[in-house]
Simulated assay, not measured.
Amino acid sequence: MQAATGLTLTGGLGVRIEDVLQLDASYQSALAASYRRFRSGGNTLYEFGDGPESAVADTVDDLLQIVKRIVNDPFADKRLRGGPLLAELLSEPDDAPANYVYSFGAFLLRELERGSEERRPEQWKRAWQTLDGLLPSDAPTQTLDSANAAYQAALDTLQTPTAAADKSADANEPRIVDDIRRFIEENYAKPISLSLLSDTFQLSQQHISTAFHKHVGMPYIKYMTRVRMENAARLLSEQPDAKIFEIAESTGYANVKHFSYVFKKHFGVTPGEYPSR
């Protein structure tokens, strides 16, 4: 096959089963065995054993979860902190074969892309181009640092809004603004910034700011303050014995003095003077 197509074929052979209900277990063990290609190369049929396969599979799964969290969780640390795991997977962190390094980066992108509808084709194209450019196929080896840098750069392209994205979003502004409002209403207790909204909705900060003001009639920060104050009043009514600092923390304010200042400015009374207290 390789002589005819130039492609390699790598497979994993799972554990034997006695019942069809065990098929998933056999599949998972075959998948774990196939992950050895990242450490030992491709074009091989790997058979599952109780030794290194499970450890390699756990490492791959852990790295994949880190990458998914970076890209999909708006509150996640956007830095790729998988260095120790990557070193464990590649086994030779100071001088790993370049094709192994690229193969694992391609695997991460494919797993992210599988079934994803949130990102646009041009973003995936840029991600693949970034990986190809930073991990060229003609390089004999790659260091752990260069692998991390390449993976991070490819992931960054999936988080960076583009002018084209802004333009294509114009027709859907009302829906997008509704989504932003819902996001604020569901996450008001967390630190929400314009930068976070930009990362989450894959639009520029300017576009979000302009569209929100246009369709809601107020800046996003004013809308978020109103949502937080309404919820603060609700909590004060529902939890009359709660401490003021607890109400502040529950509505996104780390500083109780600032919370009290904003509350009085909004309602005309301090939290302690609020009628329900």
Rank of each mutant, 00 (worst) to 15 (best):
T10L: 04
G14D: 02
G14A: 10
V15H: 05
I17L: 10
V20Q: 14
Q28I: 00
S29M: 06
R36D: 05
S54D: 15
Q65E: 14
K68Y: 09
D73H: 12
D73A: 05
P74M: 04
R79K: 13
G83C: 05
E88A: 14
L89S: 12
E92Y: 12
P93S: 05
P93E: 01
P93K: 01
V101L: 08
Y102T: 00
S103R: 04
A106G: 11
R119A: 02
K125V: 07
W128S: 05
L131F: 11
L134G: 01
P140F: 14
D145M: 06
D145E: 12
Q152P: 03
A163C: 00
D166R: 00
E173Q: 11
D179Y: 07
F183K: 03
K190E: 12
L194R: 11
L194Q: 13
L196I: 05
D199N: 04
Q202K: 04
Q205L: 06
S209N: 15
T210L: 10
K222F: 13
R228Q: 15
E230F: 03
N231W: 02
P240Q: 12
D241N: 04
A242R: 10
E249F: 03
S250L: 13
G252D: 10
Y253K: 03
S260R: 09
F263C: 07
G268P: 11
S276G: 08
